[in-house]
């Protein structure tokens, strides 16, 4: 029983990390349809920002080093969002509806960003020391739930709620959904789709930064950290169904749970194989993913 609970928890935890890295991509790729290969590097930027903030606290404010994380979160978000905004403004806006070109161009950007990180921080991985209040875990019925993992779960939950609130309850979110649904009609109502695109891309990139910030809790970070996660992130968004955020949630936790459970009964490599095989089979059956847009359309 306790093994089952542990596995289930691990699955949830993996799912939450998957969700976090896929959340930003769900906006830029899922909603806007841009294949941004540099998304992983925006995750890396967020991670390095966390590292920088931690170093600065260690140097100038050693007494409050435990709280560096609360500054690192907004800094990671805004720096990544800013880079994303620039990327959209100077590159991607010229490549809408040209998926192959944007794939190549953003891949180039990803290599540039990696090299910049290598030049500034060096090629070897660096470790970010998690705040001391995240050490240890809750002991419940003989099973230990690490605080870090619980924190990431909570973090993802908060991110999801903020994103949900933003999209569904604010005028800016409403504009974004309108542009996603029908660009021409949105502009015929007075919405500037250019501005909405720029905002949406910045927000999606900001979420990548948040993911990077969270990933520093799980292990050392390096210039290529983004490339480890970018494939998973695309997998989650495609499995979930392009264009539906709720699908991304199902996709992330689905992959997380299935992969930990198969990993437990077989091996890590086998689990990867099983996951990929299952996704391929699933997409043969439902090419539009877990959640597809269903509505009564009249015209």
């Amino acid at each position: 029983m306790s093994i089952l609970i542990t596995q289930f928890f691990n699955g949830l935890s993996l799912g939450s990390v998957m969700l976090l890295i896929a959340l930003g991509l769900a906006i830029t790729f899922g909603l806007m349809g841009v294949i941004n290969m540099a998304h992983g590097e925006l995750i890396m930027v967020g991670a390095y920002m966390t590292y920088v903030i931690q170093q600065m606290f260690a140097k100038y404010l050693p007494s409050s080093i435990d709280y560096y994380y609360f500054l690192a979160i907004p800094v990671a978000f805004f720096v990544s969002a800013f880079i994303g905004w620039g990327l959209e403004k100077w590159l991607i806006q010229y490549l809408y509806h040209r998926p192959l070109d944007s794939l190549l161009a953003t891949w180039g950007v990803s290599l540039i960003l990696q090299q910049i990180a290598r030049s500034i921080f060096g090629a070897p991985n660096v470790a970010v020391l998690p705040p001391s209040w995240l050490e240890g875990g809750v002991n419940f019925a003989g099973i230990v739930f690490p605080y870090k993992r619980l924190f990431i779960l909570l973090f993802v939950l908060v991110c999801m709620l903020i994103l949900y609130f933003y999209l569904n309850k604010t005028p800016a979110g409403r504009r974004m959904r309108a542009v996603t649904l029908n660009r021409d009609m949105a502009s015929c109502l007075g919405i500037s789709s250019r501005k909405v695109d720029a905002y949406a891309f910045a927000i999606g990139s900001g979420f990548a930064g948040l993911a990077g910030c969270a990933l520093t809790l799980l292990g050392p970070i390096g210039p290529t950290i983004g490339t480890y996660y970018i494939v998973d992130a695309f997998m989650v968004v495609i499995l979930g169904g392009v264009g539906k955020l709720i699908g991304t949630i199902f996709g992330a936790f689905g992959i997380g749970l299935v992969s930990t459970l198969t990993e437990y009964s077989t091996s890590t490599t086998m689990a990867k194989v099983v996951i990929f095989a299952m996704i391929i089979a699933f997409l043969q059956w439902k090419p539009s993913g877990l959640v597809s847009v269903k509505t009564r359309s009249l015209d």
Binding site: P171, R174, R177, N182, D184, A186, L189, S297, D299
Partner: peptide, 15 residues
């Protein structure tokens, strides 16, 4: 008509 099908009537009006 081109109303936004997945948005509520109220949201359509607010737009």
């Amino acid at each position: 008509r081109e109303i936004f099908p997945t948005m509520t009537v109220e949201e359509n009006l607010l737009l």
